[in-house]
Design a protein around this nucleic acid. Sequence first.
DNA 1: CACTGACGAGAGCGCTGCTCTTGCATCGGA
DNA 2: TCCGATGCAAGAGCAGCGCTCTCGTCAGTG
Lengths: 236, 236
Amino acid sequence: MTSRIQGARQRARGEITNAIKDEARRHLADEGASRLSLRAVARELGMVSSALYRYFPSRDDLLTALITDAYDAVGAAAEAALAEAESAGDSHLVRWRAVCRAVRAWGLAHPHEYALIYGSPVPGYAAPASTTRPASRVALALLSVLRDAHTSGALREPASGAAAPEAVLKDAELLAEHLGVELPPAVLAEVVAAWSQLFGLISFELFGQFTKVVDARDAFFDHAVEHLADQVGLRR
Amino acid sequence: MTSRIQGARQRARGEITNAIKDEARRHLADEGASRLSLRAVARELGMVSSALYRYFPSRDDLLTALITDAYDAVGAAAEAALAEAESAGDSHLVRWRAVCRAVRAWGLAHPHEYALIYGSPVPGYAAPASTTRPASRVALALLSVLRDAHTSGALREPASGAAAPEAVLKDAELLAEHLGVELPPAVLAEVVAAWSQLFGLISFELFGQFTKVVDARDAFFDHAVEHLADQVGLRR
DNA sequence: CACTGACGAGAGCGCTGCTCTTGCATCGGA
DNA sequence: TCCGATGCAAGAGCAGCGCTCTCGTCAGTG
């Protein structure tokens, strides 16, 4: 029963690790990422600060864990919204809107975690490679809407007048492999653009740039998302 | 000659204030906003840390000064690009693109100052009212392009199929007064949306979300900006 | 049962933002 | 021309920070 005993140890360790992250998230909401204090977290947990280093080798590693969790949370929210829209038999346009709304709703509910992942990158901090997969979940959800629309012929050709750049993306084949289907490069480029613009809308709302500017924010957001859907070629 | 002597004092004070801000900007580029250290700035200037408090009552006030300066710098860049395009007799579409390009170029040249104003808001920090005017200069530049296009009849009606929200903005009259001309509310809403999406494009590029995704970034940006122009009703 | 390894506690280092007091130079009015 | 007021820099000091190292202790292992 070696494994079970070791399991007990690791379970205890996992629980404490989670308690630390939960407390850190609470402090994040109170003070923001740059004021997050290991000592304060430890104090709140009844530990001494040095004990915390048994679980996270540095403050930045704790932040990395929070970042990964946040990417996973927003990605899961987007995927859940997509799955629900799919099982309801919604149109591709409605699915697109559902994903966009889910991302915005998650951001409104967790503004500090949103700022952690979509705000300024932390100073000397470079996101480790382990964050790239969670970070791409929202984009993949959007892309899979487009993929399904494409295979079912519901996608307008994005020859929207302006010369659509062809080879602006890296690794289009890798993406195609991941999605299981090849999307026209122009469509891929449009989706990436729409993806970044979606977060522009959400970030400006969350970071206060819409204060004293935008009033009916739900309607405003939905309207802009409609434009983005049009831009990527989803039929109205 | 009271005023001249006091002027000398204030001139010395102004010079030191600028030296502090310059040194702080240098540290900003090295370390990022949250690691900006008053003591390090003072050390570099051959002062003792406490002397710095004669010029800025707190670290946050120094940051506020840098934020205001950054808003003014990017606003000035946008306005300069617009003025040049106007004097060259460029079309409204080309003026629009010129402003967008100028904002992106400024961001690429000053990534840390960009992050300071368009990244996550500093923790407990609420931007004082004095920053709102500098912060709106880019948006006003974009709006003035639209105003001129509107008055010269070069603006397509933004009845782009989807129900354009009418009353999503606050203070539409105040804006109209500032611009000297009334733009249809629907156009105003489209411009605000395009404005935020523009910064989504730039932020994702600067904050590293395009790493391993987008290759030909100039072309990618120009193409997206073309879409935004279309969205706000500028004729192609 | 003896042992190893994980763990928490505590002291301590150098740094931070910020405050308060002190001494000095300069400026303005008598 | 002298004197009081004012602006300014320096220094000491406080509490807090991230992080390191050492040292008992106790639980799981062979």
